[in-house]
Design a protein around this nucleic acid. Sequence first.
DNA 1: TCGCATCCTGACCGTATGGTCAAGACCAAA
DNA 2: TTTGGTCTTGACCATACGGTCAGGATGCGA
Lengths: 215, 215
Amino acid sequence: MQENARFSGKAASRRTDIRRENERLILTAAEKVFAEAGYGGATMQLIADMAGLPKANLHYYFATKEDLYRRVVQEIFEIWLNAAASFDAASTPAEGIGAYIEAKMDISRRHPHGSKVWAAEVMQGAPVIQDYLENTLRDWTEDRARVIQGWIDAGQMAPVNPRHLLYMLWAMTQHYADFGHQIETLNGGAPLTDRQWQEATESVKTIILRGVGLD
Amino acid sequence: MQENARFSGKAASRRTDIRRENERLILTAAEKVFAEAGYGGATMQLIADMAGLPKANLHYYFATKEDLYRRVVQEIFEIWLNAAASFDAASTPAEGIGAYIEAKMDISRRHPHGSKVWAAEVMQGAPVIQDYLENTLRDWTEDRARVIQGWIDAGQMAPVNPRHLLYMLWAMTQHYADFGHQIETLNGGAPLTDRQWQEATESVKTIILRGVGLD
DNA sequence: TCGCATCCTGACCGTATGGTCAAGACCAAA
DNA sequence: TTTGGTCTTGACCATACGGTCAGGATGCGA
Protein backbone atom coordinates (compact mmCIF):
# COMPACT_ATOMS: atom_id res chain seq x y z
CA MET A 1 0.00 0.00 0.00
CA GLN A 2 2.94 2.29 0.66
CA GLU A 3 4.95 3.78 -2.15
CA ASN A 4 7.93 1.69 -1.11
CA ALA A 5 6.46 -1.26 -2.91
CA ARG A 6 6.58 0.60 -6.16
CA PHE A 7 10.29 1.29 -5.80
CA SER A 8 11.31 -2.10 -4.51
CA GLY A 9 11.59 -3.43 -8.03
CA LYS A 10 10.64 -6.96 -9.02
CA ALA A 11 11.32 -8.67 -5.72
CA ALA A 12 9.19 -7.75 -2.74
CA SER A 13 11.06 -6.75 0.40
CA ARG A 14 12.07 -9.47 2.82
CA ARG A 15 9.54 -8.11 5.29
CA THR A 16 6.71 -8.39 2.80
CA ASP A 17 7.87 -11.87 1.84
CA ILE A 18 7.80 -13.03 5.43
CA ARG A 19 4.33 -11.65 5.92
CA ARG A 20 2.96 -13.16 2.73
CA GLU A 21 4.63 -16.48 3.34
CA ASN A 22 3.43 -16.84 6.90
CA GLU A 23 -0.08 -15.73 6.10
CA ARG A 24 -0.18 -18.32 3.35
CA LEU A 25 1.20 -20.97 5.69
CA ILE A 26 -1.44 -20.16 8.28
CA LEU A 27 -4.31 -19.93 5.82
CA THR A 28 -3.44 -23.28 4.27
CA ALA A 29 -3.26 -24.96 7.65
CA ALA A 30 -6.42 -23.25 8.82
CA GLU A 31 -8.35 -24.35 5.74
CA LYS A 32 -7.49 -27.94 6.45
CA VAL A 33 -8.16 -27.83 10.17
CA PHE A 34 -11.45 -25.97 9.82
CA ALA A 35 -12.53 -28.50 7.20
CA GLU A 36 -11.59 -31.51 9.29
CA ALA A 37 -12.80 -30.32 12.67
CA GLY A 38 -15.37 -27.62 11.96
CA TYR A 39 -15.14 -24.11 13.34
CA GLY A 40 -15.97 -25.13 16.87
CA GLY A 41 -13.74 -28.18 16.83
CA ALA A 42 -10.76 -26.40 15.35
CA THR A 43 -8.24 -24.95 17.78
CA MET A 44 -5.66 -22.27 17.20
CA GLN A 45 -3.09 -24.64 18.65
CA LEU A 46 -3.90 -27.30 16.05
CA ILE A 47 -3.64 -24.79 13.24
CA ALA A 48 -0.39 -23.47 14.66
CA ASP A 49 1.11 -26.95 14.87
CA MET A 50 0.09 -27.73 11.30
CA ALA A 51 1.55 -24.44 10.11
CA GLY A 52 4.71 -25.07 12.11
CA LEU A 53 4.42 -21.81 14.03
CA PRO A 54 3.86 -20.93 17.68
CA LYS A 55 0.26 -20.18 18.53
CA ALA A 56 1.04 -16.62 19.56
CA ASN A 57 2.39 -16.02 16.09
CA LEU A 58 -1.00 -16.78 14.58
CA HIS A 59 -2.52 -14.04 16.66
CA TYR A 60 0.12 -11.68 15.36
CA TYR A 61 -1.13 -12.14 11.78
CA PHE A 62 -4.79 -12.78 12.51
CA ALA A 63 -6.28 -11.04 15.50
CA THR A 64 -8.92 -13.64 16.26
CA LYS A 65 -9.97 -17.14 15.29
CA GLU A 66 -12.99 -15.67 13.56
CA ASP A 67 -10.87 -13.33 11.45
CA LEU A 68 -8.81 -16.25 10.27
CA TYR A 69 -11.92 -18.28 9.55
CA ARG A 70 -13.52 -15.46 7.61
CA ARG A 71 -10.49 -15.23 5.33
CA VAL A 72 -10.63 -18.95 4.61
CA VAL A 73 -14.29 -18.78 3.66
CA GLN A 74 -13.77 -15.73 1.46
CA GLU A 75 -11.03 -17.46 -0.49
CA ILE A 76 -13.11 -20.42 -1.65
CA PHE A 77 -15.98 -18.11 -2.47
CA GLU A 78 -13.80 -16.06 -4.77
CA ILE A 79 -12.47 -19.18 -6.46
CA TRP A 80 -16.01 -20.22 -7.25
CA LEU A 81 -16.95 -16.83 -8.55
CA ASN A 82 -14.02 -16.98 -10.94
CA ALA A 83 -15.32 -20.28 -12.27
CA ALA A 84 -18.25 -18.32 -13.62
CA ALA A 85 -15.98 -17.15 -16.39
CA SER A 86 -16.30 -20.56 -18.03
CA PHE A 87 -20.01 -20.07 -17.98
CA ASP A 88 -20.06 -16.57 -19.39
CA ALA A 89 -17.44 -17.07 -22.06
CA ALA A 90 -19.54 -19.69 -23.83
CA SER A 91 -21.73 -19.00 -26.81
CA THR A 92 -23.93 -22.08 -26.60
CA PRO A 93 -25.73 -23.59 -23.60
CA ALA A 94 -23.97 -26.94 -23.97
CA GLU A 95 -20.63 -25.24 -24.01
CA GLY A 96 -21.44 -22.95 -21.06
CA ILE A 97 -22.96 -25.56 -18.79
CA GLY A 98 -20.37 -28.16 -19.75
CA ALA A 99 -17.47 -25.84 -19.08
CA TYR A 100 -18.98 -24.73 -15.79
CA ILE A 101 -19.33 -28.35 -14.64
CA GLU A 102 -15.74 -29.02 -15.61
CA ALA A 103 -14.50 -25.95 -13.79
CA LYS A 104 -16.45 -26.72 -10.63
CA MET A 105 -15.39 -30.38 -10.64
CA ASP A 106 -11.81 -29.27 -11.00
CA ILE A 107 -12.18 -26.95 -8.03
CA SER A 108 -13.73 -29.74 -6.00
CA ARG A 109 -10.67 -31.79 -6.66
CA ARG A 110 -8.12 -29.08 -6.02
CA HIS A 111 -9.82 -27.33 -3.09
CA PRO A 112 -11.75 -29.97 -1.16
CA HIS A 113 -11.01 -28.32 2.18
CA GLY A 114 -12.29 -24.91 1.19
CA SER A 115 -15.45 -26.47 -0.20
CA LYS A 116 -16.10 -28.22 3.10
CA VAL A 117 -15.54 -25.08 5.11
CA TRP A 118 -18.03 -23.26 2.93
CA ALA A 119 -20.56 -26.08 3.25
CA ALA A 120 -20.27 -26.13 7.03
CA GLU A 121 -20.60 -22.37 7.18
CA VAL A 122 -23.79 -22.41 5.12
CA MET A 123 -25.20 -25.38 7.03
CA GLN A 124 -24.82 -23.44 10.24
CA GLY A 125 -26.80 -20.54 8.84
CA ALA A 126 -23.92 -18.56 7.34
CA PRO A 127 -23.21 -16.62 10.55
CA VAL A 128 -20.18 -14.86 9.09
CA ILE A 129 -20.88 -14.64 5.36
CA GLN A 130 -24.58 -13.91 5.24
CA ASP A 131 -23.89 -10.62 3.47
CA TYR A 132 -22.10 -12.51 0.68
CA LEU A 133 -25.16 -14.64 0.17
CA GLU A 134 -27.51 -11.70 0.17
CA ASN A 135 -25.49 -9.55 -2.17
CA THR A 136 -22.77 -11.09 -4.32
CA LEU A 137 -24.26 -14.56 -4.61
CA ARG A 138 -27.80 -13.33 -5.09
CA ASP A 139 -26.77 -11.05 -7.93
CA TRP A 140 -24.59 -13.74 -9.46
CA THR A 141 -27.43 -16.23 -9.36
CA GLU A 142 -29.99 -13.87 -10.86
CA ASP A 143 -27.62 -12.97 -13.69
CA ARG A 144 -27.00 -16.59 -14.61
CA ALA A 145 -30.62 -17.53 -14.22
CA ARG A 146 -31.43 -14.83 -16.72
CA VAL A 147 -28.84 -16.15 -19.16
CA ILE A 148 -30.29 -19.65 -18.88
CA GLN A 149 -33.82 -18.34 -19.29
CA GLY A 150 -32.61 -16.57 -22.43
CA TRP A 151 -31.37 -19.86 -23.85
CA ILE A 152 -34.69 -21.47 -23.05
CA ASP A 153 -36.67 -18.66 -24.60
CA ALA A 154 -34.53 -18.95 -27.72
CA GLY A 155 -35.41 -22.63 -27.91
CA GLN A 156 -31.80 -23.66 -27.40
CA MET A 157 -32.54 -25.96 -24.48
CA ALA A 158 -35.43 -27.63 -22.72
CA PRO A 159 -37.56 -25.51 -20.40
CA VAL A 160 -36.32 -26.10 -16.86
CA ASN A 161 -36.32 -23.88 -13.83
CA PRO A 162 -32.97 -22.06 -14.10
CA ARG A 163 -32.56 -21.69 -10.35
CA HIS A 164 -33.05 -25.36 -9.65
CA LEU A 165 -30.68 -26.19 -12.47
CA LEU A 166 -28.03 -24.04 -10.80
CA TYR A 167 -28.67 -25.66 -7.44
CA MET A 168 -28.22 -29.07 -9.05
CA LEU A 169 -24.95 -28.04 -10.61
CA TRP A 170 -23.66 -26.78 -7.28
CA ALA A 171 -24.93 -29.83 -5.43
CA MET A 172 -23.37 -32.39 -7.73
CA THR A 173 -20.02 -30.76 -8.25
CA GLN A 174 -19.50 -29.84 -4.61
CA HIS A 175 -20.66 -33.27 -3.50
CA TYR A 176 -17.42 -34.72 -4.85
CA ALA A 177 -15.49 -32.47 -2.47
CA ASP A 178 -17.78 -32.36 0.55
CA PHE A 179 -18.59 -36.08 0.55
CA GLY A 180 -15.20 -37.08 -0.80
CA HIS A 181 -14.56 -39.28 2.19
CA GLN A 182 -17.78 -41.21 1.64
CA ILE A 183 -17.03 -41.62 -2.05
CA GLU A 184 -13.52 -42.75 -1.24
CA THR A 185 -14.84 -45.33 1.20
CA LEU A 186 -17.33 -46.63 -1.38
CA ASN A 187 -14.45 -46.74 -3.84
CA GLY A 188 -12.77 -49.40 -1.73
CA GLY A 189 -10.94 -46.91 0.46
CA ALA A 190 -8.88 -45.41 -2.34
CA PRO A 191 -9.09 -41.80 -3.56
CA LEU A 192 -10.47 -41.40 -7.07
CA THR A 193 -7.80 -41.70 -9.71
CA ASP A 194 -7.33 -39.21 -12.54
CA ARG A 195 -9.38 -41.52 -14.71
CA GLN A 196 -12.15 -41.81 -12.15
CA TRP A 197 -12.38 -38.06 -11.74
CA GLN A 198 -12.70 -37.78 -15.48
CA GLU A 199 -15.41 -40.41 -15.46
CA ALA A 200 -17.25 -38.58 -12.68
CA THR A 201 -17.08 -35.32 -14.60
CA GLU A 202 -18.27 -37.02 -17.76
CA SER A 203 -21.14 -38.68 -15.91
CA VAL A 204 -22.33 -35.39 -14.50
CA LYS A 205 -21.99 -33.64 -17.84
CA THR A 206 -23.75 -36.40 -19.76
CA ILE A 207 -26.71 -36.66 -17.44
CA ILE A 208 -27.17 -32.94 -16.96
CA LEU A 209 -26.75 -31.98 -20.61
CA ARG A 210 -29.12 -34.68 -21.74
CA GLY A 211 -31.37 -33.73 -18.85
CA VAL A 212 -31.77 -30.23 -20.20
CA GLY A 213 -32.17 -31.43 -23.76
CA LEU A 214 -28.65 -30.79 -24.99
CA ASP A 215 -27.42 -34.15 -26.23
CA MET B 1 -36.11 -56.03 28.58
CA GLN B 2 -37.61 -57.45 31.72
CA GLU B 3 -40.71 -59.62 31.69
CA ASN B 4 -42.62 -56.84 33.45
CA ALA B 5 -43.20 -55.19 30.12
CA ARG B 6 -45.15 -58.17 28.96
CA PHE B 7 -47.50 -57.98 31.91
CA SER B 8 -47.98 -54.23 31.98
CA GLY B 9 -50.72 -54.41 29.38
CA LYS B 10 -51.17 -51.92 26.58
CA ALA B 11 -49.76 -48.85 28.33
CA ALA B 12 -46.08 -48.79 29.12
CA SER B 13 -45.20 -48.17 32.74
CA ARG B 14 -44.79 -44.61 33.93
CA ARG B 15 -41.07 -45.23 34.29
CA THR B 16 -40.71 -46.39 30.71
CA ASP B 17 -42.74 -43.43 29.52
CA ILE B 18 -40.52 -40.96 31.31
CA ARG B 19 -37.43 -42.55 29.88
CA ARG B 20 -38.76 -42.63 26.32
CA GLU B 21 -40.11 -39.12 26.55
CA ASN B 22 -36.94 -37.59 27.91
CA GLU B 23 -34.71 -39.44 25.48
CA ARG B 24 -36.86 -38.15 22.64
CA LEU B 25 -36.77 -34.62 24.04
CA ILE B 26 -32.99 -34.75 24.31
CA LEU B 27 -32.44 -36.34 20.90
CA THR B 28 -34.64 -33.76 19.17
CA ALA B 29 -32.83 -30.89 20.85
CA ALA B 30 -29.44 -32.47 20.16
CA GLU B 31 -30.22 -32.95 16.48
CA LYS B 32 -30.96 -29.27 16.12
CA VAL B 33 -28.00 -28.02 18.14
CA PHE B 34 -25.49 -30.35 16.46
CA ALA B 35 -26.81 -29.22 13.08
CA GLU B 36 -26.62 -25.53 13.88
CA ALA B 37 -23.32 -25.50 15.74
CA GLY B 38 -21.46 -28.62 14.63
CA TYR B 39 -20.18 -31.24 17.04
CA GLY B 40 -17.42 -29.05 18.38
CA GLY B 41 -19.56 -25.96 18.66
CA ALA B 42 -22.46 -27.72 20.33
CA THR B 43 -22.50 -27.71 24.12
CA MET B 44 -24.35 -29.99 26.48
CA GLN B 45 -25.68 -26.88 28.22
CA LEU B 46 -27.22 -25.60 24.97
CA ILE B 47 -28.84 -28.94 24.28
CA ALA B 48 -30.10 -29.12 27.84
CA ASP B 49 -31.63 -25.65 27.64
CA MET B 50 -33.33 -26.46 24.36
CA ALA B 51 -34.67 -29.70 25.80
CA GLY B 52 -35.79 -27.89 28.95
CA LEU B 53 -33.79 -30.15 31.25
CA PRO B 54 -30.85 -29.63 33.60
CA LYS B 55 -27.53 -30.52 32.06
CA ALA B 56 -26.84 -33.23 34.61
CA ASN B 57 -30.02 -34.95 33.49
CA LEU B 58 -28.64 -35.33 29.97
CA HIS B 59 -25.71 -37.25 31.35
CA TYR B 60 -28.11 -39.53 33.15
CA TYR B 61 -29.62 -40.66 29.84
CA PHE B 62 -26.56 -40.32 27.63
CA ALA B 63 -23.23 -40.98 29.28
CA THR B 64 -21.20 -38.71 27.02
CA LYS B 65 -21.62 -36.05 24.36
CA GLU B 66 -20.29 -38.51 21.83
CA ASP B 67 -22.87 -41.15 22.75
CA LEU B 68 -25.64 -38.62 22.22
CA TYR B 69 -24.12 -37.53 18.92
CA ARG B 70 -23.79 -41.09 17.70
CA ARG B 71 -27.48 -41.72 18.30
CA VAL B 72 -28.43 -38.63 16.31
CA VAL B 73 -26.32 -39.72 13.35
CA GLN B 74 -27.68 -43.26 13.44
CA GLU B 75 -31.26 -42.02 13.30
CA ILE B 76 -30.92 -40.09 10.05
CA PHE B 77 -28.98 -42.95 8.51
CA GLU B 78 -31.80 -45.37 9.25
CA ILE B 79 -34.37 -42.98 7.82
CA TRP B 80 -32.42 -42.88 4.58
CA LEU B 81 -32.05 -46.62 4.42
CA ASN B 82 -35.81 -46.96 4.73
CA ALA B 83 -36.24 -44.66 1.73
CA ALA B 84 -34.65 -47.41 -0.30
CA ALA B 85 -37.96 -49.20 -0.18
CA SER B 86 -39.33 -46.77 -2.76
CA PHE B 87 -36.46 -47.76 -4.97
CA ASP B 88 -36.82 -51.48 -4.58
CA ALA B 89 -40.59 -51.65 -4.79
CA ALA B 90 -40.59 -50.26 -8.32
CA SER B 91 -40.81 -52.37 -11.42
CA THR B 92 -39.50 -49.83 -13.93
CA PRO B 93 -36.44 -47.59 -13.73
CA ALA B 94 -38.50 -44.41 -14.12
CA GLU B 95 -40.73 -45.46 -11.28
CA GLY B 96 -37.87 -46.52 -9.03
CA ILE B 97 -35.64 -43.51 -9.55
CA GLY B 98 -38.59 -41.12 -9.47
CA ALA B 99 -39.95 -42.54 -6.25
CA TYR B 100 -36.50 -42.50 -4.67
CA ILE B 101 -36.04 -38.82 -5.54
CA GLU B 102 -39.44 -38.03 -4.08
CA ALA B 103 -38.70 -39.94 -0.90
CA LYS B 104 -35.31 -38.31 -0.43
CA MET B 105 -36.65 -34.84 -1.14
CA ASP B 106 -39.37 -35.44 1.40
CA ILE B 107 -36.80 -36.46 3.97
CA SER B 108 -34.74 -33.37 3.20
CA ARG B 109 -37.75 -31.28 3.99
CA ARG B 110 -38.80 -33.12 7.12
CA HIS B 111 -35.37 -33.85 8.59
CA PRO B 112 -33.08 -31.00 7.59
CA HIS B 113 -31.19 -31.10 10.87
CA GLY B 114 -30.37 -34.78 10.68
CA SER B 115 -29.18 -34.38 7.13
CA LYS B 116 -26.82 -31.60 8.15
CA VAL B 117 -25.42 -33.60 11.04
CA TRP B 118 -24.72 -36.49 8.69
CA ALA B 119 -23.09 -34.17 6.16
CA ALA B 120 -20.84 -32.62 8.78
CA GLU B 121 -19.91 -36.05 10.11
CA VAL B 122 -18.91 -37.29 6.66
CA MET B 123 -17.07 -34.07 5.82
CA GLN B 124 -14.96 -34.54 8.91
CA GLY B 125 -13.95 -38.02 7.82
CA ALA B 126 -16.76 -39.96 9.50
CA PRO B 127 -14.87 -40.39 12.80
CA VAL B 128 -17.80 -42.08 14.52
CA ILE B 129 -19.69 -43.83 11.72
CA GLN B 130 -16.92 -45.09 9.50
CA ASP B 131 -18.07 -48.66 10.06
CA TYR B 132 -21.53 -47.79 8.71
CA LEU B 133 -19.94 -46.49 5.54
CA GLU B 134 -17.74 -49.52 5.15
CA ASN B 135 -20.44 -52.08 5.79
CA THR B 136 -24.09 -51.08 5.57
CA LEU B 137 -23.71 -48.26 3.07
CA ARG B 138 -21.24 -50.11 0.90
CA ASP B 139 -23.49 -53.13 0.61
CA TRP B 140 -26.52 -50.94 0.00
CA THR B 141 -24.73 -49.07 -2.76
CA GLU B 142 -23.46 -52.16 -4.48
CA ASP B 143 -26.91 -53.72 -4.44
CA ARG B 144 -28.54 -50.68 -6.03
CA ALA B 145 -25.74 -50.23 -8.51
CA ARG B 146 -26.39 -53.79 -9.62
CA VAL B 147 -30.09 -53.12 -10.01
CA ILE B 148 -29.38 -50.04 -12.13
CA GLN B 149 -26.84 -51.94 -14.21
CA GLY B 150 -29.51 -54.57 -14.77
CA TRP B 151 -31.86 -51.93 -16.16
CA ILE B 152 -29.13 -50.67 -18.44
CA ASP B 153 -28.24 -54.14 -19.66
CA ALA B 154 -31.92 -54.73 -20.38
CA GLY B 155 -31.97 -51.60 -22.51
CA GLN B 156 -34.45 -49.91 -20.19
CA MET B 157 -32.35 -46.80 -19.67
CA ALA B 158 -29.30 -45.05 -21.07
CA PRO B 159 -25.88 -46.42 -20.14
CA VAL B 160 -24.57 -44.34 -17.28
CA ASN B 161 -22.25 -45.19 -14.45
CA PRO B 162 -24.64 -46.43 -11.72
CA ARG B 163 -22.43 -45.25 -8.87
CA HIS B 164 -22.16 -41.72 -10.15
CA LEU B 165 -25.89 -41.68 -10.74
CA LEU B 166 -26.44 -42.60 -7.10
CA TYR B 167 -24.00 -39.93 -5.95
CA MET B 168 -25.90 -37.39 -8.01
CA LEU B 169 -29.20 -38.41 -6.50
CA TRP B 170 -27.78 -38.06 -3.00
CA ALA B 171 -26.10 -34.78 -3.80
CA MET B 172 -29.14 -33.10 -5.27
CA THR B 173 -31.72 -34.27 -2.78
CA GLN B 174 -29.59 -33.62 0.29
CA HIS B 175 -28.52 -30.25 -1.07
CA TYR B 176 -32.02 -28.96 -0.40
CA ALA B 177 -31.56 -29.79 3.29
CA ASP B 178 -27.87 -29.08 3.79
CA PHE B 179 -27.84 -25.82 1.82
CA GLY B 180 -31.38 -24.91 2.79
CA HIS B 181 -30.24 -21.67 4.30
CA GLN B 182 -28.51 -20.61 1.10
CA ILE B 183 -31.53 -21.55 -0.98
CA GLU B 184 -33.77 -19.67 1.41
CA THR B 185 -31.60 -16.58 1.13
CA LEU B 186 -31.65 -16.78 -2.67
CA ASN B 187 -35.40 -17.19 -2.42
CA GLY B 188 -35.68 -13.69 -0.98
CA GLY B 189 -35.21 -14.82 2.59
CA ALA B 190 -38.34 -16.96 2.71
CA PRO B 191 -38.43 -20.75 3.16
CA LEU B 192 -39.63 -22.69 0.16
CA THR B 193 -43.40 -23.02 0.06
CA ASP B 194 -45.21 -26.31 -0.53
CA ARG B 195 -45.48 -25.33 -4.16
CA GLN B 196 -41.80 -24.52 -4.43
CA TRP B 197 -40.79 -27.81 -2.86
CA GLN B 198 -42.96 -29.56 -5.39
CA GLU B 199 -41.32 -27.56 -8.15
CA ALA B 200 -37.87 -28.44 -6.85
CA THR B 201 -38.76 -32.12 -6.75
CA GLU B 202 -40.20 -31.98 -10.25
CA SER B 203 -37.12 -30.19 -11.54
CA VAL B 204 -34.82 -32.81 -10.13
CA LYS B 205 -36.98 -35.65 -11.43
CA THR B 206 -37.36 -34.15 -14.88
CA ILE B 207 -33.68 -33.45 -15.42
CA ILE B 208 -32.47 -36.73 -13.98
CA LEU B 209 -35.02 -38.96 -15.69
CA ARG B 210 -34.42 -37.30 -19.04
CA GLY B 211 -30.71 -37.40 -18.26
CA VAL B 212 -30.76 -41.17 -18.04
CA GLY B 213 -33.01 -41.51 -21.08
CA LEU B 214 -36.30 -42.02 -19.32
CA ASP B 215 -38.56 -39.25 -20.59
C1' DT C 1 26.73 1.29 13.05
C1' DC C 2 22.51 3.18 14.83
C1' DG C 3 17.59 3.44 15.45
C1' DC C 4 13.19 2.00 14.50
C1' DA C 5 9.63 -0.93 12.87
C1' DT C 6 8.43 -5.54 12.19
C1' DC C 7 8.41 -10.08 13.73
C1' DC C 8 8.63 -13.78 17.24
C1' DT C 9 7.32 -16.43 21.37
C1' DG C 10 7.05 -18.52 26.26
C1' DA C 11 4.39 -17.68 29.98
C1' DC C 12 0.27 -16.38 31.60
C1' DC C 13 -5.01 -15.46 32.43
C1' DG C 14 -10.06 -15.75 32.62
C1' DT C 15 -13.60 -18.41 31.02
C1' DA C 16 -16.36 -22.15 29.38
C1' DT C 17 -16.80 -26.95 28.82
C1' DG C 18 -17.62 -32.07 29.54
C1' DG C 19 -18.24 -34.71 33.06
C1' DT C 20 -18.92 -36.23 38.25
C1' DC C 21 -21.20 -36.85 42.50
C1' DA C 22 -23.93 -37.08 46.51
C1' DA C 23 -28.19 -36.16 48.29
C1' DG C 24 -32.76 -36.15 47.66
C1' DA C 25 -37.50 -36.80 45.11
C1' DC C 26 -40.45 -39.90 43.00
C1' DC C 27 -42.58 -44.27 41.95
C1' DA C 28 -44.25 -48.96 42.22
C1' DA C 29 -44.32 -53.49 44.10
C1' DA C 30 -44.67 -56.09 48.37
C1' DT D 1 -45.91 -48.36 55.04
C1' DT D 2 -41.70 -50.11 53.84
C1' DT D 3 -38.19 -50.97 50.49
C1' DG D 4 -35.45 -50.64 46.49
C1' DG D 5 -34.86 -49.03 42.12
C1' DT D 6 -35.35 -44.97 38.96
C1' DC D 7 -35.00 -40.29 38.19
C1' DT D 8 -33.49 -35.36 39.26
C1' DT D 9 -30.32 -31.69 40.13
C1' DG D 10 -27.17 -28.00 42.19
C1' DA D 11 -22.62 -27.76 43.16
C1' DC D 12 -18.30 -28.93 41.96
C1' DC D 13 -13.79 -30.19 39.34
C1' DA D 14 -10.03 -30.63 36.01
C1' DT D 15 -8.96 -29.35 31.63
C1' DA D 16 -8.53 -26.93 27.42
C1' DC D 17 -9.33 -22.99 24.94
C1' DG D 18 -8.91 -18.13 22.84
C1' DG D 19 -6.51 -14.45 23.64
C1' DT D 20 -2.79 -11.20 25.93
C1' DC D 21 1.58 -9.35 26.86
C1' DA D 22 6.22 -8.10 27.70
C1' DG D 23 10.56 -8.64 26.21
C1' DG D 24 13.68 -10.17 22.90
C1' DA D 25 15.26 -11.16 17.95
C1' DT D 26 15.57 -9.73 13.31
C1' DG D 27 15.65 -6.88 9.21
C1' DC D 28 16.52 -2.56 7.00
C1' DG D 29 16.98 2.28 5.76
C1' DA D 30 19.87 6.14 7.04
